[in-house]
């Protein structure tokens, strides 16, 4: 079978996570649909999770994994609240984008 000469190290994971984080960040900055922006935030959280898990193995310390567990809980709660807000605002106006929300200037 494949005798893998190259084994992905922790750094690979961390760089991948960094990439994911950056993509999420760009997404938040360029997209104007609040739902998508929100998804991008979730991507960023996922990048953090990946970082934690990769580090936990590298440091041989379980607490990194525990942290991910809490992040998952937080993400879930955040989604509930965030979608609640989005629904309550979009129920008024379909197709609201972040730029349309201009009742508040700035």
């Amino acid at each position: 079978m494949i005798t893998a000469a190259v084994v992905p190290t922790t750094t690979w994971y961390l760089v991948l996570a960094a990439g994911l984080f950056a993509i999420g960040m760009i997404g938040v900055l360029v997209r104007r649909n609040p739902l998508i922006m929100f998804m991008c935030i979730e991507l960023m959280l996922n990048a953090v999770n990946l970082t934690f898990v990769a580090l936990a193995t590298e440091l041989t310390d379980i607490n990194g994994q525990t942290a991910v567990f809490f992040v998952l809980v937080v993400a879930a709660a955040e989604v509930v609240v965030g979608l609640g807000i989005i629904v309550s605002i979009m129920r008024r106006r379909q197709q609201a984008t972040a730029d349309d929300l201009a009742a508040l200037k700035g």
Binding site: A22, L59, D61
Partner: peptide, 30 residues
């Protein structure tokens, strides 16, 4: 945003690559 994102990526990558050998604290094992 693109520039910012790439900058962020570069920063983070530098951080993790530069410090790949300094992750020397070890725990009780997973």
């Amino acid at each position: 945003a693109l520039v910012l994102g790439i900058g962020m990526f570069a920063l983070l990558t530098t951080a993790v690559v530069r410090s790949r050998d300094s992750l020397r604290f070890k725990g009780d094992g997973v």
